[in-house]
Design a protein around this nucleic acid. Structure first.
Lengths: 198, 198
DNA sequence: CCGCTCATGTAACTGGTTACATGATTTA
DNA sequence: TAAATCATGTAACCAGTTACATGAGCGG
């Protein structure tokens, strides 16, 4: 009977070393926040994620607090008690190990799934647009376009001081433009298809 | 003491009705596959996801098989045994309820998180590019650009027969173009920044 | 007869969500 | 003094991953 790899995967809670996997986006992002915004509280990490327009970052307490705790167990961060006025809080700082792990997540080298095709729920739905009636299809496209245009306005009026924040924002704007242009193409094609059928 | 909503969330395995949440992307996509590709096996749903270039769709058996089972428990699909030659398999078909649930996932109406800003691990990393040295930064951009160009070629040579498959593919191509153009902008900006510093 | 594809599953785990819960301090 | 903000957490749950496991039929 073959000896499985499973044997090696000892529960990580018992501070034994299991096979270390690649950092998740949340992990990398929290480490990054700590790198970029100095020593700060779990609360402020959380607030940053809550502020983000992307629904990717739920910023739920149930994710952030345990994550920071795990980081500390693994020696990626250190925490010290601090007083902000009369109020106490824990400030987290990256350790050398944490910086290493962050750097590992950030790349280079970039793993394929970071660079290649991104998940897009709108594109996913496009495969199934045939399930809608012509009328519903138009409604679908119209509603998507309207939401995207509103979204674009928001992005274009928002500002970022830091160079790379600004470049990331530029990326979001470009993507939104591209999605709008794509929806235009979709609209044209389905309109053509309809007139061809007549 | 306030009566929590928790009380309502009775375990769904015991065929009691809990608050029904919005379908996940996987759920919607599997229902969609069943809608689009007629009665088919869990295996073929799985294969389709394994073929997909997007890393979003792991197509792990541990996701698909239990999902189809849950669908059947909830009355969203029906299954019947079928023979393909001498080999037996279960063919799943959408029920009326399943079509309803699919339609609900597909929209319209579209929920904001479907339309608004998509998660992009490359854009996420952009916020933290300041953590790299100038040299590493160039390597980062160069490697991303190279991978994206290769990716674009793949997309441009791949074909789709069905209209909406083709439109979805067009979307992926447009996104890749936009990401490449964005990386060009990034490269220009950081080059300008460097020369300004001299 | 070997290896590939078709075909179906399960057990253990884990990362993250939802919802609950608390309390101090600041500001209107 | 009421509401908002700062601040920290936990318990229950769940969807999805990883890895294991099995077996029939088919093509070379």
């Amino acid at each position: 009977m073959p000896q499985g790899l499973r044997e090696l995967a000892v529960p990580s809670r018992n501070r034994t070393i299991g096979p270390v996997r690649a950092p998740s986006e949340l992990e990398g992002c929290v480490l990054g926040h700590l790198w970029k915004h100095g020593p700060c509280t779990a609360y402020s990490v959380r607030s940053a994620m809550l502020e983000s327009p992307s629904s990717q970052w739920s910023g739920s307490a149930g994710a952030i607090y345990p994550l920071l705790q795990r980081f500390e167990e693994r020696g990626l961060v250190r925490s010290r008690k601090a007083m902000r006025g009369e109020r106490e809080s824990w400030l987290y700082t990256l350790t050398a190990g944490g910086r290493g792990r962050f750097r590992e997540w950030l790349g280079p080298p970039l793993t394929p799934d970071v660079v290649s095709i991104t998940a897009d729920p709108l594109r996913t739905r496009m495969y199934f647009l045939g399930a809608l009636s012509t009328r519903e299809r138009s409604a679908f496209i119209a509603s998507a376009r309207a939401t995207l245009r509103r979204h674009l306005e928001e992005l274009e009026t928002s500002s970022a001081r830091e160079v790379f924040d600004r470049l990331a924002l530029r990326g979001a704007i470009r993507m939104t433009h591209a999605r709008l242009a794509w929806l235009d193409e979709v609209r044209r094609v389905i309109a053509r298809g309809m007139s061809a059928k007549r």
